[in-house]
Design a binder for these strands. Sequence first.
RNA 1: CGGGGCGUAGCGCAGUCUGGUAGCGCAUCUGGUUUGGGACCAGAGGGUCGCAAGUUCGAAUCUUGCCGCCCCGACCA
Length: 447
Amino acid sequence: MRLSQFFLPVLKETPSDAEIVSHQLMLRAGMIRQEGAGIYAWLPLGLRVLRKIEGIVREEQNRAGAVEMLMPTIQQAELWRESGRYDAYGKEMLRIEDRKGRDMLFGPTNEEMITEIFRAGVRSYKDLPKMLYHIQWKFRDEIRPRFGVMRGREFLMKDTYSFDVDRDAGRLSYNKMFVAYLRTFARLGLKSIPMRADSGPIGGDSHEFIVLAETGESEVFCDKRLIDLPIPPVDVDYTGDLQPIVDQFTSYYAATEEEHTADEFEAKVDEHNRISARGIEVGHIFFFGSKYSEPMKALAAGADGKENPVEMGSYGVGVSRLVGALIEAYHDDDGCKWPMVVAPFHVGLVNLKAGDSDTDAACADIYKALEAEGVEVLYDETPARPGEKFARMDLIGAPFQIVIGPRGLADGKAEVKTRADGARQDMALSEVAGAIAARVKEALRVT
RNA sequence: CGGGGCGUAGCGCAGUCUGGUAGCGCAUCUGGUUUGGGACCAGAGGGUCGCAAGUUCGAAUCUUGCCGCCCCGACCA
């Protein structure tokens, strides 16, 4: 992508109503624009990151055996009356009316709809288990939206729903999502910790996946040793027994504020291993049994011919929130420092003397060579001053910056800067594209 | 919803107390000088002062109502 064709409205100054660094940088780097309280337009740069996160979430869901679909954002109130939640949900639900005066709503979640879809297509235990998911915009009329995309009213969520014949089978689905979430967040470059969470009125299992961050909204307590537990590899067998993996993570103490008890914390964790910190909830997995299948009559016949409500779970990932969480984890004073897998561009190519035929030609060659290798390049061929170019590239945070100017050109050199540590090194002009492409590919390799 | 704060050019702000017809920095545009890590000089454009009503000879400034946004609390991906 050539910068001159792109739309990148960067800000030099920090907008005054952005409180936390991720919100500030998203506005400054031209990733989002606020259109209302908790409502944001995703500008081209921000959308690139959002799509990449979405892609990784999708890959890991598919790997775990979940099947993608897409449900609408607008739902009928009728459906929610069936489950009894139309009245129970409260003011967080945005209620609207169509031209015929029918009650509609902008979906805050999809349990009812998926249950309705499922019951229409499944009658027998032979069709189970099933896991279905979609990645769709949700609207929750939050009492107080804040922190940019971290708590927006409109947000992008991946929500998966599992359907099983009984509780034991349900546990297997739960474990699949548990493992998929460990992998998803690790692939994104985040250290997530599954924490025991409020299980709600009907009981069942529930874990929140928390990324530690000073700006997190939740207060959390956990065992330090959780942070470096091994993540299940790409070839983990989802048809096999995942219980040992889940057990390993859940054997250590980890709880959010609501579930935390100081006595248990002190009894189970040595003082030097205790972490008491703040965290961002990036995922939540929940097994809720027949809460919806029973009132909504989502039944499956068992081997004995008797019909029973299916056992369900739901599993959410805050996709748009993850953009904020990633910036909280990866930034410095100059801007974003994206991990390769979510970087809006892998490489920023800086032409130090745009308009000079030699530097233009050298840049064009490298640009072409990189794109041919599948590397995503933002090529700054605008005649701005060098300092401004560097600042802009730092702000958007491409992992590599390749700098071409007349001085280096004379020696056949290009300068390569690594955004993560700021290191700069000279590389031979003839080799730079190949070498950087190899490093990009290596960083994108899935493990 | 309760408490606090804010709304003046794309961004950051001053001016409001004490009414007199709108200003600064950055950004943008033009010309020139520059060009290897956030340049300099000269000039220019850009504003229903959140909206509406009222007071007044005169309102960004005073009064009332409304709208919007941010921060602190109970909910959640």
